[in-house]
Design a binder for these strands. Structure first.
Lengths: 148, 148
DNA sequence: TATTGTTATACTCTATAACTATA
DNA sequence: TATAGTTATAGAGTATAACAATA
């Protein structure tokens, strides 16, 4: 076997490290959620619906920063597994009010625990303090600018 | 317009912030590299080839953590634009020794500047110190375990 | 038998655009 | 005219598996 090759020049870029870690985290998160029948995006969607009862699909799209067409698939999946439901809105028959079912809320509680355990594992090389720092720094970069 | 919806529960997870920031960074990086005729992965590949002259495609795959079949496409693209070249290796006619052309080295120098400017912009809400902290924390999570 | 590079294929994720029904 | 949801489609990006040449 030849020498180990290096990526030192790329390592100076935060973005390169960011991508490597993201892929690592995403792969492990996927495996962690799989036993619950969730994917990373259905987990996120379920989370946002639980936090914002009766939001519409368009609002969910905006919050998750994805297109409305993508939300349809997520909501379909969550509705087919009885985790959330689409409810008609009085006054506007175009949109749905989404909310979690009792099963959805119960599964979400479990999923949140699973994801916490996943992060404990994947970030185990960092102290709790460092993890908070990381989360804080990342949160400041992706600041949702308030729309007018 | 209705109230702003929240993703506060997801925000407690480092992974969620990580993904949001990664998508943000990646989209801007792509736009930044486009005028140079590079994609994020060809930029990375060019970088690693320049840093490790005469490495093989398999070694490049290992360094970038992608499959060998994916490297073929990247190297094809870089070779077709005369940025790197595949050279036969004496002693093993299965593999190629990759190295940058003068044009490749020149373009890489320009690209590195572009990417620095891109990061200055995208991470402008962080101080230089905080950016270093971020990069350091990320680097510690994705630690390439030394293979036996 | 194992490895390098290659090809063909498929899969996931997501965006775009066109459509419908409502407003 | 504009908006919510939907559908169909296409494009990245990447992985898997099978193959030829070479070791």
């Amino acid at each position: 076997m030849a020498h180990e090759m290096t990526d030192l020049n790329l390592r100076q870029f935060a973005g390169y490290n960011l991508k490597r870690v993201y892929l690592l985290v995403h792969a492990d998160l996927m495996k962690s959620l799989e036993p619950l029948g969730l994917r990373t995006m259905t987990f996120s969607a379920l989370n946002v619906v639980a936090e914002n009862p009766n939001l519409t699909q368009s609002q969910l799209a905006q919050t998750l920063k994805i297109e409305r067409s993508g939300v349809v698939v997520l909501v379909d999946e969550l509705e087919n597994t009885d985790l959330i439901s689409r409810n008609r809105v009085e006054g506007d028959r175009r949109s749905y009010a989404l909310h979690t079912t009792p099963e959805g809320a119960a599964l979400l509680a479990k999923a949140n625990q699973v994801v916490h355990a996943h992060e404990d594992k994947i970030f185990s090389d960092l102290s709790q303090n460092e993890r908070d720092t990381l989360r804080g720094l990342l949160g400041r970069i992706d600041t949702p600018k308030t729309q007018t």
